[in-house]
Design a binder for these strands. Sequence first.
DNA 1: AGCATGCCTGACCGATCGGTCAGATGCCGA
DNA 2: TCGGCATCTGACCGATCGGTCAGGCATGCT
Lengths: 182, 182
Amino acid sequence: MTRAAPERHDDILAAAGRRFAQSGYRGTSLQDIAADVGCSKAAVLYHFTDKKAILAELVARPIDQLRALDERIAAVSSPAEAQRVAAEGFVDLAVQFRRETAFLRGEFPGLLQQPPFSHLQHIPDRLVRAFAGHSDRPAARVAALVILAGIAETCGEFIDLPEAELRPALLALVRRALEPVT
Amino acid sequence: MTRAAPERHDDILAAAGRRFAQSGYRGTSLQDIAADVGCSKAAVLYHFTDKKAILAELVARPIDQLRALDERIAAVSSPAEAQRVAAEGFVDLAVQFRRETAFLRGEFPGLLQQPPFSHLQHIPDRLVRAFAGHSDRPAARVAALVILAGIAETCGEFIDLPEAELRPALLALVRRALEPVT
DNA sequence: AGCATGCCTGACCGATCGGTCAGATGCCGA
DNA sequence: TCGGCATCTGACCGATCGGTCAGGCATGCT
């Protein structure tokens, strides 16, 4: 069965993403990916030079999305508008990013501090500042990141609560924590 | 070089713990562990039946600690005392547990819902209730867990802030979030 | 028709993995 | 001194891994 190259490329990427998220990078063989796609292992290596290349392209996507959100925030004029944009986009993005790259933290600790992931160390700084409303309290800025970034992974691990219910409750709590002291 | 069995046993366990935390379970070979300990791979398999057995014994330890803390909280009389004990013990324990078992989440998702890890789903319930001071707001109880559990992993990943500085700031924030609405 | 190109397959390779096994070594009680 | 047990080693096994290679097959251009 022969398909057009771009579609096969994306099929492999999607299958690899599901497998990596489920069983980790080292726990996923090229044979597994090929079976999901419905082709041979050699076909996978025809579209990607390496197994590493699949991973690299897979993680580049959320990084680009996060960078795009960062630029969108940088483009708006008022801090209030920046906060709104950040609050809307960052939660979903942080949740998605952590869910899709959870296996990286276990198998490759320290990898997120290296390029191209190290971009994240600078981008979230502006994101969180926008989200926390230019708060001077570092605890508030840190907390916004910690809470948001921890939602996806912690939910369903310790807590038996669907993400749909957990997120608004936590968001309300984040907003409250970030309110200025009266 | 021959050592007494209990010491060798613990040496292997300690070496495996470091390796698993660094490179993951599948990323660590028995040869790696043996090299760290200073013995042969067969010697490792003399003290442990399986590679799985090493992992099982490694993760059983923090589970026991968490259960012990739970029993300590159940033993105290007043809710205020329970809250103090929980606040003291749970933060360190949650941080340690998440750091030492971070690789599990990436390589074996869903494992923490199965025995013997599923005990954690019941134990933290009382812990968090004690920590949150019997709050009726579910968001507060959830938040206490989420925040505490997210400290170890998120710190040093996105945030360039040592844990020693991060923890008191977050603890202050947790307490504030849990205060009753005035 | 003939040929080139893109896409894919099955067979194969070396390396590494977890695990087994027979036997060597050292220690300790009889 | 001798036998037995605990501890450990080197050699080895089958399985699986990532990756290579020669060739097959369809399509489309000349």
